[in-house]
Simulated assay, not measured.
Amino acid sequence: MFRYNFDEKLSFYKAIYYEFDPIPLPRVFQDGTGGLGQFAPERGCIELYDSQGFVAHYLAIDKTFIDTILPLILTGETKTFNQWREFLYWKVRNSGFQSEKAVCLGKMDTLMLDLLAQHKNMPLHRFLGATKDWANAYKGGGSILLEDSELVDDMQRYVSEGYKTVKFKVGSADIERDLRRVDKVRSALGHDIEIAVDANQKWDVATATRFAQLIEPYHLAWLEEPIHANDMNGIRNLKEQGINVPIAFGESMRISYEFEIYAEKGVDVLQPSVGRMTRMDDLLAIRDLARDKGLRFTSGGRVYLCALFGTLFNENELIEFHEPISQPMSEYALNIPEERDGRFYLPADIPGNPQRLNLEKLEYEGLLRFKKYFYSNR
């Protein structure tokens, strides 16, 4: 299994946490479970300073990270990347690896990798081994709240922008409505464009089986999370029913071991979410698992971070651009990847992770609530 192994030592002396008001979405977004809403999920970001004066940035940090991680690292101690990982693992282990505390470990991973890349004066993706500066993407959206014609318009626009794979939500109160929308989108896009749908764990096995059978003539790229993400035997039962549409799971899981179980149970598409992992090298471990098992691999999460790791994937291993949720936050960020023809291109001349929050714009628009300083106790 792929694992990072960096011996360079790190010590942290200061952090600045910025909290801002919710960023409104242009339109309320809803999946089949009623999830999401009218605001982007991000509420804060952090700058982490090491003892050499380098600064790492993370655009989606919350108070859980501030309360859990900062007291453990702002101690004046010096450890290697792997030693910090080991130390922090044992501190949060008893919280469980689906917990928000566990997810903080992956965010700390990213901050440390950012610093290590800056030490080498290399863009982070190149430091991690990327040989290209872009990632192939698919585009997702398709709120349950959209009228059929609005959904079709959005999917057609995505294709006109260069995307070969698009995704929208299913799981409305009326399964016949979902089927009608699949039919309308397929008719509008033709058969050369991949279409995926996401049920956000809405159904039981019987309903998911029925839906999968009904959509079979439309040759979907995948059906995402049709049942509860932890219902491993339910997934096995789905496959035993003989459904032919590929099923996808992963964004609800935090660690690579769960993906091994998914593969054993018959999941066809493994989908880790970048900002939710407990270790960032798990992304590559899951990628390699998919390759070894002949499964499809895609990666979700906020596209500005996802693209960075997506440079390590091949052309058929796509990252997700969930436009309705990601685009509004991108308006308040600097040095983010450039969207062009179904790909995201990273800056190739900025050391570390180039992405920054546009604090001046947030402050100008009255959205920046406060910033708080934290210092090493030594």
Score class of each variant (00 low, 15 high):
residue 79 K to P: 06
residue 76 G to A: 08
residue 115 L to V: 13
residue 111 L to H: 00
residue 201 Q to R: 10
residue 363 E to N: 11
residue 66 I to R: 01
residue 50 D to V: 02
residue 121 N to S: 11
residue 173 A to V: 07
residue 58 Y to S: 00
residue 10 L to D: 09
residue 275 G to A: 02
residue 196 A to L: 13
residue 231 D to C: 03
residue 264 E to L: 08
residue 201 Q to C: 15
residue 11 S to E: 14
residue 88 L to N: 03
residue 364 Y to C: 04
residue 198 D to R: 00
residue 233 N to G: 01
residue 172 S to A: 13
residue 325 I to R: 05
residue 377 N to S: 11
residue 377 N to D: 07
residue 193 I to R: 04
residue 107 K to S: 00
residue 338 E to Y: 08
residue 45 C to I: 02
residue 214 L to F: 01
residue 2 F to C: 02
residue 38 Q to M: 08
residue 34 G to A: 10
residue 313 F to L: 14
residue 330 S to A: 10
residue 15 A to L: 12
residue 283 L to I: 14
residue 215 I to S: 04
residue 292 D to T: 13
residue 262 Y to A: 11
residue 192 D to F: 06
residue 99 S to E: 07
residue 102 A to S: 12
residue 3 R to S: 14
residue 360 E to V: 06
residue 29 F to I: 09
residue 225 E to N: 04
residue 157 R to H: 14
residue 302 R to I: 10
residue 245 V to M: 07
residue 220 L to K: 03
residue 55 V to K: 10
residue 364 Y to V: 01
residue 302 R to L: 11
residue 167 K to A: 11
residue 314 N to W: 05
residue 361 K to F: 09
residue 351 P to Y: 11
residue 322 H to G: 06
residue 276 R to D: 01
residue 167 K to S: 08
residue 252 S to F: 04
residue 376 S to M: 02
residue 316 N to E: 11
residue 190 G to K: 08
residue 365 E to R: 05
residue 8 E to G: 02
residue 138 Y to P: 08
residue 216 E to A: 15
residue 142 G to R: 06
residue 171 G to K: 02
residue 173 A to Y: 09
residue 359 L to E: 13
residue 289 L to W: 06
residue 11 S to Q: 13
residue 183 D to T: 14
residue 348 A to S: 13
residue 70 L to M: 07
residue 200 N to I: 00
residue 268 D to Q: 05
residue 89 Y to W: 15
residue 157 R to I: 14
residue 293 K to N: 09
residue 174 D to W: 08
residue 226 P to W: 00
residue 93 R to C: 00
residue 294 G to A: 08
residue 43 R to K: 13
residue 232 M to Q: 01
residue 205 V to T: 12
residue 23 I to A: 03
residue 284 L to N: 05
residue 353 N to K: 09
residue 311 T to S: 07
residue 83 Q to A: 13
residue 72 L to W: 00
residue 235 I to K: 03
residue 147 E to G: 12
residue 322 H to I: 11
residue 80 T to Q: 02
residue 205 V to L: 07
residue 193 I to V: 15
residue 79 K to Q: 12
residue 258 E to F: 09
residue 211 F to H: 03
residue 134 W to K: 04
residue 150 E to P: 01
residue 14 K to Q: 15
residue 204 D to G: 15
residue 210 R to A: 04
residue 191 H to E: 14
residue 133 D to Q: 11
residue 103 V to W: 00
residue 184 K to H: 12
residue 29 F to L: 11
residue 291 R to L: 13
residue 24 P to E: 09
residue 25 L to S: 06
residue 360 E to C: 01
residue 375 Y to N: 09
residue 217 P to R: 08
residue 355 Q to E: 12
residue 273 S to P: 01
residue 328 P to N: 10
residue 211 F to W: 05
residue 200 N to C: 01
residue 214 L to K: 14
residue 283 L to P: 07
residue 293 K to R: 15
residue 272 P to K: 02
residue 234 G to K: 05
residue 109 D to A: 04
residue 258 E to G: 00
residue 336 I to V: 15
residue 7 D to P: 01
residue 25 L to R: 02
residue 29 F to M: 09
residue 375 Y to E: 14
residue 312 L to Y: 03
residue 190 G to W: 14
